[in-house]
C-alpha cells in the first residue's frame, strides 16, 4: 500500500513536471493542422473532405503520440541524474522499481491527456464540418421529398462519424505507451538522452518492419543463412509495431473485429509489461 502511494507520488510529480515543460504547446500545431486542413479542403466533395480530415488528424495524433513518448521518456533519467533529484528520491525509502513505475505512469498520464485533447479537437472539427455540410445539403434539397432528404443526410453522417474511430484512437494510445516503455528500457543502460532518442527512433522504424522480417524468416525462403538469422533476430528482439496500425483501415471505413482489437490491446499490454520488467531488472543494479 505504501509502495503504491510512493508510485502515485512519483507519477503525479512526473506529470506535473512534464506539463510545466510546456509539452501541451504541441496542441497548437495540431489545432492549426486540423483546422487549416478543414478550411483548405473546402473545394473537395464532402466525402473527400472527411476522409482527408480523418487521414491527417489520426496520422498527426500518431506522430505526436510517438514523439511525446520517445522524447519525454528518453529525457527523464539523464535529467534527474543531472539535476541530482534522483539521488534525493532514492535516498528515501523509495524502491527503484517504484521510481521507474511512477515515472512511466506519469508519462502514460501525459500521453492519455494529450491523445484525449487531440481526439476532442479532431471530433469537434469533424462535428462542425458535418453540421456545415448538412446545412448545405438541406438547402440544396429544398423541395425534395422527405425520403430523399433523409437519404442525403444519412450519406453525410455515414461519411463523418464511425464508431470504429474510437478503437483506432485507443490503439494509437497503446502504441505510444509501448514506445514509452521501450524507450524506458533503452534509457536504463544508455549513457545519454541523445543515444536513447536515436535508438528509440531507429527501433520505431525497425519495429514497423518486424512483421515483414518475421514472415520472411518463417516462410523459410531459400537464402543465405546469415540473412535468415538476421530476420530471426529482428523478429525476436523487436516489437511488431505494424500490428498497431489499424487506423489506416479504420479511416477507410473498414470495421475492426472485436477479437482483433482485444488481441492488439493484449499484445500492447504484454510488450509494455515485459519492457518495463526488463528496464526494472537493468535499473535495479545500475550504478548511479
Amino acid at each position: 500500500m505504501k509502495l503504491l502511494g510512493v508510485t502515485i507520488a512519483v507519477a503525479s510529480n512526473t506529470f506535473t513536471e512534464l506539463v510545466r515543460q510546456k509539452v501541451f504547446y504541441f496542441l497548437m500545431i495540431f489545432a492549426l493542422l486540423v483546422i487549416g486542413n478543414s478550411a483548405f479542403m473546402a473545394k473537395f466533395s464532402f466525402q473527400e473532405q472527411f476522409q482527408m480530415l480523418k487521414d491527417i488528424s489520426l496520422g498527426a495524433m500518431s506522430v505526436f503520440g510517438s514523439l511525446i513518448a520517445i522524447l519525454a521518456t528518453a529525457n527523464f533519467l539523464p535529467k534527474d541524474m543531472e539535476d541530482r533529484t534522483i539521488y534525493s528520491i532514492l535516498a528515501k525509502p523509495v524502491p527503484r522499481f517504484s521510481y521507474l513505475l511512477g515515472k512511466l505512469c506519469g508519462i502514460f498520464g501525459l500521453l492519455a491527456v494529450s491523445i484525449l485533447l487531440m481526439s476532442a479537437l479532431f471530433l469537434a472539427v469533424l462535428w462542425i464540418r458535418e453540421g456545415t455540410v448538412l446545412n448545405e445539403t438541406r438547402a440544396q434539397l429544398q423541395g425534395a421529398t422527405a425520403e430523399e432528404i433523409a437519404a442525403a443526410v444519412k450519406e453525410v453522417t455515414n461519411a463523418t462519424f464511425n464508431i470504429n474511430l474510437i478503437p483506432g484512437i485507443v490503439v494509437i494510445f497503446f502504441k505510444s505507451a509501448l514506445l514509452a516503455s521501450l524507450t524506458l528500457f533503452l534509457s536504463t543502460f544508455a549513457t545519454s538522452s541523445i543515444f536513447t532518442i536515436l535508438m528509440a527512433t531507429a527501433l520505431y522504424f525497425i519495429g514497423h518492419l518486424q512483421s515483414t522480417a518475421r514472415e520472411y524468416w518463417l516462410a523459410g525462403v531459400d537464402v543465405h543463412c546469415w540473412s535468415r538469422l538476421l530476420a530471426a533476430l529482428v523478429s525476436l528482439l523487436f516489437p511488431d509495431l505494424q500490428a498497431f496500425n489499424l487506423t489506416d483501415d479504420i479511416i477507410a471505413g473498414a470495421a475492426v473485429p472485436m477479437t482483433l482489437f482485444a488481441g492488439t490491446i493484449g499484445l500492447g499490454l504484454l510488450y509494455i509489461s515485459v519492457y518495463f520488467s526488463l528496464a526494472a531488472l537493468v535499473f535495479s543494479d545500475r550504478e548511479l
Binding site: 523478429s235 525476436l236 528482439l237 496500425n245 473498414a254 499484445l267 526488463l278
Partner: peptide
Amino acid sequence: SLALLCLFGASLLPIQARLNNDARAAHLR
C-alpha cells in the same frame, strides 16, 4: 535481459501470427 527478450519474442510468435491471420481475414493490412 537480452536473452529474456529473445525468449519473449519467441513466445509471441503464435500470437502475432494469429493476429495477422485475423487481420487478413477481415481484409485489413
